[in-house]
Amino acid sequence: MELSGQFPVQLLCERIGIPRSSFYHWKKSVEHPSKQKKRLVQSILLFQEYHIRFPSHGYRWLNAKIRLDKGIIFSDPYAHKCCKMAGIKSVSKHYKYKKPGDPFRIYPNLLLAGIDIQGPMECIVSDMTFFYVKGTYYELTLYMYLWNDELIAHALSSRRGDRMTYLAGLQDVLAFKKQYPEYKLILHSDQGSVYASKSYNELLPMYNITRSMSRAGTPTDNAAMESINGWIKAELFTDFHITSSENVPEQVSDYIRFFNEERPAYTLGYLTPKQYRERFSPKQEYAAQTTAGDV
């Protein structure tokens, strides 16, 4: 375009091997874009805006988040086109798990039995993950409904090996389960020392809770929880930009609320856990659990 003001258009077109009419057609499309192209540019800018806020996610999740926040509906192929043109890619890295380990277990693995989860009061999975903020070590223990991936309890500690993060989260689960004694609940975890301890398990039968455990050294037996752990650490630092050691518990609590109420989930058809619960919860006495406090 700039050279056309310095050299004859005919000469420039001959040098690059295109008809002169093609140049003028392109020039007109640039100077007077169609409504379709304008919408495409606006869509690309919107995806870029959301990618800046949530760089750990790809085009499907960004599309779902835009639909949730703004009510704008794009097809997945169109969202992919916009992101490809803008060079948008997820920056998160996920890791493959090892092969299944020793089948020995303290409690039977009920998830391997293929239980049919129909509602939120049927199975809770738990695990601990850790991360560093400015050199400070943190352990985060989570309790999640397997039915809709809702995080119903969490506890955070900056002490390595702090068993109270497990027990504090469990107490929140028991307090909630106490309201619904008639429902049977499965609690699944790995074979960590706290999960297997007497103090952790001795109260569970009183609350109509059945224990289930993964095989030793087999994270894939608790794949949903392991996947959530990976996403949480990616999003905490990539999207929520936790870089200061101040108010880490508050920032984690804010993220848990975001996870439950504002984060579309692929496994839920890009509904949030809260939306899924409100839309598909069985007709039973069930109230949303408020997020547990930090330790």
Rank of each mutant, 00 (worst) to 15 (best):
S92Q: 14
K93M: 08
K93N: 11
K93Y: 10
K93F: 06
H94T: 13
Y95N: 12
Y95S: 13
Y95Q: 13
K96F: 09
K96R: 15
K96T: 11
K96I: 11
Y97L: 13
Y97V: 10
K98V: 07
K99W: 02
G101C: 04
G101Q: 05
G101S: 05
P103Y: 04
P103C: 01
F104E: 14
F104R: 15
F104L: 14
R105T: 13
I106L: 15
I106D: 15
I106T: 14
Y107S: 08
P108G: 07
N109V: 01
L110G: 03
L110A: 05
L110T: 11
L111C: 10
L111R: 14
L111K: 14
L112S: 13
L112T: 03
G114S: 11
G114Y: 11
G114W: 10
I115M: 09
D116T: 09
I117G: 02
I117T: 07
I117E: 08
Q118M: 11
G119D: 09
G119F: 04
P120D: 07
M121R: 15
M121A: 13
E122F: 01
E122R: 09
E122L: 03
C123G: 02
C123M: 12
C123P: 00
C123W: 01
I124C: 04
I124Y: 06
V125W: 00
S126M: 10
D127M: 04
M128W: 01
T129L: 13
T129V: 09
T129Y: 02
T129D: 06
F131T: 00
Y132R: 13
Y132M: 15
V133Q: 07
V133L: 10
K134N: 09
K134L: 07
K134C: 08
G135Q: 11
G135R: 12
G135W: 06
T136E: 15
T136W: 10
Y137M: 12
Y137E: 13
Y138I: 06
E139K: 01
E139C: 09
L140N: 02
L140P: 01
L140F: 07
L140D: 01
L142N: 07
L142E: 06
L142P: 00
L142R: 04
M144K: 08
L146S: 10
W147H: 02
W147N: 01
D149V: 04
E150F: 02
E150V: 01
E150K: 08
E150Y: 08
E150C: 04
L151C: 09
L151V: 11
I152Q: 04
A153W: 00
A155K: 00
A155P: 00
L156W: 01
L156K: 03
S157H: 04
S158F: 00
R159I: 14
R160I: 14
G161D: 07
G161P: 01
G161W: 06
D162K: 07
D162E: 09
D162S: 05
D162Q: 10
R163G: 06
M164P: 00
M164C: 13
Y166M: 12
A168K: 15
L170N: 03
L170H: 02
Q171H: 12
Q171C: 04
Q171N: 13
D172Q: 12
D172Y: 09
V173S: 03
L174I: 10
A175P: 00
A175R: 14
A175I: 05
F176E: 07
F176D: 10
F176P: 00
K178W: 05
